[in-house]
């Protein structure tokens, strides 16, 4: 029960912080540390648009009903940004996912992005396609995309396991731009050995704020920072209280 109350308090507090930061951003824009992976990704995205090439986005296997679905939603925010930019390009982005519900959401996201870019007639549902349902099947279904000559950038953001290493190796072999982020620790460790600019921890959830510069995403990133500092404070203070016998 106590845990439920604490959870409820954290959720309400975070919601209030979100509103507060959203209001404060109207006067003072937040400043975040530069993340080279996102800078390189933006550059690769612009280059692919200029060259008329395709961008491949993989959303992972996060089921929307599970905890891993949060990584999927974060990748959907990035998909929205990429789809808006590439809507009128020569080639639409290639979107893959390892979950049926995630594919439906990706199709919806792309359609609204194309609508926002006044290019709804260019949208095709099959630009978002399902890969395999198991991790290895999903990775093997993506491997042909890494060998395509007209695909210049590969972005893997979502719930991936260690099998993401196979995809990174394929990207390296074909000299394609590659950036990946996962909420899985073993995937992060594997990506560190391969990706030129690896992303750790919650940097996956910062994609929306860094790429699309959406005010809501920036506000939520600020909320994350505040909560992180509060958590650090709690981690330092609670052993002291335990030591003192408070609880």
């Amino acid at each position: 029960m106590i845990l439920n109350l604490i959870s409820l308090f954290i959720i309400v507090f975070a919601a209030l912080l979100l509103f507060t930061f959203r209001l404060l951003q109207r006067k003072h824009a937040p400043r975040f540390r530069p993340i080279p992976a996102f800078q390189q990704f933006q550059r690769a995205l612009n280059l692919s648009i200029e060259e008329g090439k395709q961008v491949h986005l993989s959303l992972g296997r996060g089921h929307p009903l599970m905890l891993q679905g949060a990584a999927g939603f974060a990748s959907l925010g990035m998909l929205r940004h990429v789809a808006e930019l590439t809507a009128a390009g020569d080639r639409p982005p290639l979107v893959t996912a390892g979950e049926g519900a995630l594919i439906l959401l990706a199709q919806d996201t792309m359609q609204s992005a194309y609508r926002a870019a006044m290019a709804e007639e260019l949208y095709h549902p099959l630009t978002a396609r399902l890969g395999g349902l198991s991790p290895m099947a999903y990775a093997s279904s993506l491997l042909p995309a890494f060998g395509e000559k007209h695909t210049s950038a590969h972005v893997l953001m979502g719930n991936f396991g260690a099998e993401v290493l196979l995809l990174g190796e394929a990207a390296q072999r074909n000299h394609a731009f590659f950036v990946a982020a996962s909420d899985d620790l073993s995937a992060q460790a594997a990506l560190f050995t391969l990706a030129p600019h690896p992303l750790f921890g919650e940097e996956l959830f910062a994609a929306g704020a860094y790429l699309s510069r959406d005010p809501a995403h920036q506000a939520s990133l600020s909320v994350q920072d505040v909560l992180r500092w509060l958590l650090i404070l709690a981690l330092l203070v609670s052993p002291l209280f335990k030591f003192l016998g408070v609880f």
């Binding site: 975070a14 919601a15 949060a70 974060a74 909420d183 939520s220 994350q224």
Partner: peptide, 14 residues
């Protein structure tokens, strides 16, 4: 994992 949990929290809030 704590950082990821915070990211999950804010994503869910959004």
């Amino acid at each position: 994992l704590l950082g990821i949990a915070l990211g999950v929290l804010t994503a869910g809030l959004r």
